[in-house]
Write a protein that binds this DNA or RNA. Structure first.
Length: 585
DNA sequence: GCCGTTTTCGGCCCGACTGTTTTCAGTCG
């Protein structure tokens, strides 16, 4: 990819981010996330996110040809591209500062409530809210009561919104990281740029974003960084390290190191701390030292290895350890005995088994486009899994499924190399039953069953309902097991070992949902199954639009972080083996 | 704010559910 298209892409990302921020602040202004103006800007951001060509090069007229972009949005984009800011956005930012906006991230608090809290109780941030909670002032407000106080207090605790525990969901950090990396790669004299830290581990939430740059001169790198539009405030400005904050309060550290030390620095800043300690111990055993500059001889200080991570692992007698595994949970010992798991690569994925189209109420690409895109990506098999009828808004009736089946028959002729399964994403009810009836379900090729409601049952009840779905003969896989939305809503609690046992016994697999909001099953739960071969997984995108097939890489990252072995992931299997497996189940 | 078998403004996938109230805000996909 050339420099020009790097810039084009990062500028589109930047514009999407700006429009989303505008929509976010409009929610407070309008008093509802469902307000039509809010939804209009959100829809415009969707359209811009799916745009390939650089929006910055388009005229207002060209922008308005995009579905969902009209005069006002096009005008704001041009204003941003031409002047670097949007006057109305700046007004909203002044009226609703980041610390106040953060309050809306707490489940149970919407725009109306936070504005009410500010008007009546002068609550401007999470700290103020906690004081109001302690003083039991919130129950005095109209529409709120003692239960609301309890719920809010619990939500604050669980989301880690306060103090130094503050972490940002990966879905917000990753685009920012990509934007910063692309921008710094374009600076003359820069040899390499990588993000490190917990983002490189593919953690669900990120504390600070660490970006490492290999360059002989730091000054131009730092200048380029602090002048990025994403940078709202510069905290520290030094020769090798600059720390800045985004408008949302995410801290970004940029470090510049000599190209010859890049591997040692990347290893050091990627961590984890526990992983580094184990590596340092191995170095000491050999009479060496390991720090952020090099693996070096303890006496002479002569470097042993420093340029690449691989060279350092090799010198320490280890196989290369992928960043996702570096949590100090046995990976160093495994690498010593050459016992690291054989992990999934994106190229291993042969099929996608959770796909929606506009037949589902929330699908955004047509069935024809979804199938053509899957075929174009070289997939061998897919399952079309529209929402089941129990999801009132988005689900399909039996009749609609029959009609869609006719469309699929036509598409199978059009794409003979792609095996198309017809299925459904069923809803697991509070009691573990699912949509439709047994006879109807038997006619479907592949069923995902997912929790979409009743998030507040006890762990015992959640485990029971999920296990009942696992043993339903029509159910092939449990979709996004916890139903969490990272940083927004905690998932359901289940006895994960009991779930693994049930899956093993029933021959039902577990989905690893690739969407960055979900990454579900969470990696730390996946890791609990790392020593068992009787549980089968499926990595799926849950695509609602043609662009989302690309999300598969995030699901693969999450599977790697969870030590899931390639041989246990059914959609890495060749078509023949996969189809035989479904048939014999 | 966007859209339109568009011309000047009404409709925008929407229904069930919870916690709070007695009409509404927020949550789900």
């Amino acid at each position: 990819m050339g420099l020009a298209s790097f810039w084009a892409m990062s500028t589109n990302r930047e514009i999407v981010r700006i429009i989303r921020e505008y929509a976010e602040l409009l929610k407070l202004e309008e008093g509802s996330p469902q307000a039509f103006r809010v939804r209009a800007y959100d829809k415009a951001a969707d359209a811009l996110g799916e745009l390939i060509e650089p929006a910055a090069d388009m005229t207002s007229g060209e922008l308005q040809k995009l579905d969902g972009v009209g005069r006002a949005t096009a005008g704001k984009i041009r204003e941003y591209v031409d002047t670097g800011s949007i006057a109305k956005l700046d007004d909203l930012r002044r009226k609703y500062p980041p610390a106040f906006v953060e309050l809306t991230r707490i489940p149970g608090l919407g725009p109306k409530t936070v504005v009410l809290l500010r008007d009546k109780l002068n609550v401007n941030n999470v700290e103020d809210l906690k004081e109001a909670l302690a003083a039991e002032q919130i129950r005095e407000l109209p529409g709120l009561g003692a239960k609301s106080e309890e719920k809010i207090a619990k939500a604050i605790d669980r989301l880690g919104l306060h103090g130094k525990d503050r972490r940002t969901p990966i879905i917000r950090v990753l685009p920012i990281a990509q934007e910063v990396v692309a921008a710094l790669e374009a600076v003359p004299g820069v040899k390499r740029v990588e993000y490190a830290g917990s983002l490189r581990h593919f953690a669900d939430t990120i504390g600070d974003l660490d970006v490492l740059v290999a360059a002989s001169r730091a000054q131009s790198v730092m200048e380029a960084f602090v002048s990025l539009p994403i940078v709202a405030e510069v905290e520290v400005r030094g020769d090798t390290k600059t720390t800045a904050l985004t408008a949302e309060g995410l801290q970004i550290d940029v470090r510049v190191v000599a190209p010859g030390e890049f591997g040692a620095a990347l290893l050091y800043f990627t961590g984890s701390k526990a992983h580094n300690i184990e590596l340092r111990q191995l170095a000491i055993n050999r009479g060496w030292t390991l720090n952020e500059y090099a693996l070096a001889d303890g006496e002479s200080g002569e470097p042993v290895a420093a340029r690449t991570e691989n060279a350092i692992y090799k010198a320490l007698g280890l196989k290369y350890i992928p960043p996702e595994l570096r949590e100090g949970v046995g990976e160093v010992v495994a690498a010593t005995s050459r016992d690291l798991p054989k992990l999934v690569e994106v190229e291993d994925i042969k099929g996608d088994l959770h796909v929606h189209s506009t037949w589902s109420g929330d699908g955004r690409s047509s069935l024809d486009d979804m199938v053509a895109t899957a075929a174009g990506r070289g997939l061998e098999y897919i399952a079309i899994t529209e929402h089941g009828e129990d999801l009132t808004i988005n689900g399909l009736s039996r009749e609609q499924i029959r009609e869609e089946g006719l469309e699929l028959a036509r598409l199978r002729e059009e794409f003979p190399d792609l095996t198309i399964l017809q299925g459904s994403e069923l809803n697991i009810g509070a009691d573990g039953t699912v949509d439709y009836d047994d006879e109807f379900l038997a006619g479907l090729d592949w069923c995902v069953a997912s929790v979409h409601s009743h998030f507040d049952l006890s762990q015992a009840d959640q485990t029971e309902r999920v296990i009942r779905a696992i043993f339903n003969p029509a159910v092939n896989v449990i979709g996004h097991l916890t139903g969490r939305k990272i940083g927004i809503r905690p998932g359901i609690e289940v006895d994960i070992d009991a779930v693994f046992d049930a899956c093993a016994e029933a021959g039902t697999s577990l989905e690893i949902n690739s969407h960055l909001h979900r990454l579900d099953v969470p990696a730390d739960w996946l890791r609990r199954a790392r020593d068992r071969d009787d549980v089968t997984f499926v990595i799926s995108t849950d695509s609602h639009h043609v662009t989302q097939f690309d999300n598969i890489k995030w699901g693969v990252h999450n599977s790697r972080r969870g030590w899931v072995q390639k041989k246990n992931v059914a959609n890495t299997w060749p078509k023949e083996k996969f189809l035989k497996w479904i048939k014999e189940r």
